Amino acid sequence: MATTGYLKRLTRRLTEDLGEVDAEQIAEESRATGAQRAAECCRGDEVTMHGELRAVQTCSRTAKEGVKAEFFDGSDTVLLKWLGRNRIPGIEPGRKLTVRGRLAEHDGAKVIYNPYYELYGSDDE
């Protein structure tokens, strides 16, 4: 019986979309920390979310756009914007972090401006 369950889980992991598996794992970690889910948060809410940075865009010294990062918590994507910064050490794709701030909307997308954040390394997990 135990081998049947193992084989089902193994088959599921081998055939399931990697994006879905990744989202499920991130959502599980987020639930374990007690953080809010991005999909359930609305504009104006003070939020604390846990997830992973999917993409980071830094600006040149002449541009004043700041650092932008795509944050994913397993349920939805939130854009994080640090204004007036060219680069932030540790803010890079693949890093897990907890962010805190007020949720806003810009062009229909969820955004947190200048969020407080706590980075997690591979040894913290």
Score class of each variant (00 low, 15 high):
55 A>Y: 08
73 D>A: 09
77 T>R: 14
92 E>H: 13
71 F>M: 06
49 M>T: 07
88 I>W: 01
44 G>T: 03
88 I>N: 07
87 R>I: 09
80 L>G: 07
58 T>E: 13
62 T>M: 02
20 E>W: 12
33 T>W: 04
30 S>Y: 05
91 I>P: 07
89 P>V: 02
64 K>E: 07
31 R>S: 14
85 R>D: 04
30 S>W: 05
47 V>T: 07
90 G>Y: 02
75 S>P: 11
76 D>H: 11
38 A>L: 08
38 A>T: 06
49 M>A: 10
74 G>S: 07
26 I>P: 10
55 A>I: 03
64 K>S: 13
21 V>F: 12
45 D>C: 00
31 R>K: 13
46 E>K: 13
41 C>Q: 10
56 V>F: 05
68 K>Y: 08
40 E>N: 11
30 S>P: 09
34 G>Q: 09
85 R>S: 05
22 D>A: 15
70 E>T: 13
40 E>A: 12
95 R>G: 10
67 V>Q: 06
28 E>V: 02
97 L>A: 14
42 C>N: 15
35 A>T: 07
80 L>E: 10
76 D>F: 06
70 E>L: 14
62 T>A: 09
20 E>K: 15
74 G>A: 11
45 D>Q: 00
71 F>G: 12
97 L>Y: 04
57 Q>G: 11
52 E>G: 10
29 E>N: 10
78 V>N: 09
96 K>M: 14
24 E>K: 14
80 L>N: 09
53 L>A: 11
44 G>Y: 03
71 F>C: 10
41 C>R: 09
94 G>C: 09
83 L>Y: 07
54 R>D: 11
95 R>Q: 14
50 H>A: 15
21 V>A: 14
38 A>K: 04
67 V>A: 03
35 A>G: 12
71 F>S: 12
97 L>Q: 07
93 P>E: 05
66 G>S: 00
59 C>D: 01
84 G>H: 01
75 S>V: 04
51 G>F: 08
81 K>H: 10
72 F>I: 00
29 E>H: 07
70 E>I: 06
48 T>Y: 08
84 G>N: 06
65 E>I: 01
56 V>M: 06
29 E>P: 01
77 T>S: 14
40 E>V: 00
62 T>L: 05
56 V>A: 08
64 K>I: 00
32 A>K: 12
41 C>T: 06
23 A>K: 05
88 I>E: 10
28 E>C: 11
44 G>F: 02
59 C>Y: 00
91 I>N: 11
82 W>T: 04
26 I>D: 13
53 L>T: 06
33 T>F: 05
81 K>S: 03
29 E>Q: 13
92 E>N: 06
43 R>P: 08
48 T>C: 14
93 P>F: 05
65 E>T: 13
65 E>D: 11
43 R>T: 13
56 V>R: 01
90 G>Q: 03
21 V>Q: 14
72 F>Y: 14
40 E>Y: 02
37 R>D: 15
90 G>P: 02
49 M>H: 11
59 C>I: 00
70 E>Y: 01
74 G>C: 06
23 A>S: 15
51 G>C: 12
45 D>S: 00
87 R>A: 09
60 S>I: 01
91 I>Y: 03
39 A>W: 06
42 C>E: 15
63 A>K: 12
75 S>G: 09
81 K>Y: 03
35 A>I: 02
90 G>H: 05
78 V>W: 04
68 K>M: 08
